[in-house]
């Protein structure tokens, strides 16, 4: 029997004003799956993604990564778990402006205390086609290039789970497509679990499994 790599049980998120963003969400994701989270704007997609990655606190419910109850851990323990198991790609890239492309990709390795950060990062930058731009700062790169750096940064730690929040949202369709290709390719090569939030119906179809959200609730 396959153990799920990620399990969400009865997850709820309310904000101070009493507004319910997520209500009673439960599902399981198996290793190697590609799962899309779809829904209208404001349906709670990004909040769900953030909660699955341990970036926020749920009002109730649990998230398990492997056997580990994510919210039984402290903020720092969750961070260390992310450093080990999780990769991220954001809609707005979220590269650190102070660091070069290479340094941005090296950062998660350095944070995890891994050796050989530079050669691994160079290797991955080469694979996303940015071997020539390693010493450039984010402001010197185009949107597509920045997202490719972000993808290299996400995959460099060889994560078990890759979270992507609207990865093509800020890109034109051709660039978006090449970025998606790259993501799926790396996903296959590294046998990672891909969980992505998207508006793009075509992209959602490419994922084997979809979770539909409507007004904070899962719909079939």
């Amino acid at each position: 029997m396959v153990h799920p790599v990620l399990k969400v049980v009865g997850l709820e998120k309310k904000i101070d004003s009493g507004l319910v963003i997520l209500r009673n969400i439960s599902f399981e994701i198996n290793p190697g799956d590609a799962v899309s989270i779809v829904g209208a704007s404001g349906s709670g997609k990004s909040t769900l993604l953030g909660l699955m990655a341990g970036l926020d606190h749920p009002s109730s419910g649990k998230v398990y990564i492997g056997e580990q109850d994510l919210y039984a851990l402290s903020e720092d323990e969750r961070a260390r778990l992310r450093a080990k198991l999780v990769g991220f790609v954001f809609q707005s890239f979220q590269l650190l402006p102070a660091l070069t492309a290479l340094e941005n990709v090296m950062l998660p390795l350095e944070l995890a205390g891994r050796r050989g950060a530079k050669s691994l990062a160079l290797d991955l930058l080469g694979r996303v086609g940015l071997a020539e731009r390693t010493s450039h700062y984010p402001r010197e790169l185009s949107g597509g290039e920045q997202q490719r750096v972000a993808i290299a940064r996400a995959f460099v730690t060889d994560p078990a789970i890759l979270f992507a929040d609207e990865p093509t949202g800020n890109l034109d369709s051709a660039t978006g497509e090449s970025v998606i290709e790259l993501m799926f390719e790396l996903n296959r090569e590294q046998n990672a679990t891909l969980i992505l939030v998207t508006h793009d119906a075509e992209l959602a179809r490419r994922c084997g499994k979809s979770i539909h959200l409507k007004m904070g609730e899962m719909v079939e």
């Binding site: 990655a53 970036l55 903020e75 720092d76 961070a79 260390r80 778990l81 992310r82 450093a83 080990k84 999780v86 991220f88 979220q94 590269l95 650190l96 402006p97 102070a98 950062l107 998660p108 944070l111 995890a112 940064r153 730690t157």
Partner: peptide, 14 residues
Amino acid sequence: REAAIMRALGADTR
């Protein structure tokens, strides 16, 4: 913002 990105990438408090 930068600290939040670092957190997301797995940086701990220290």
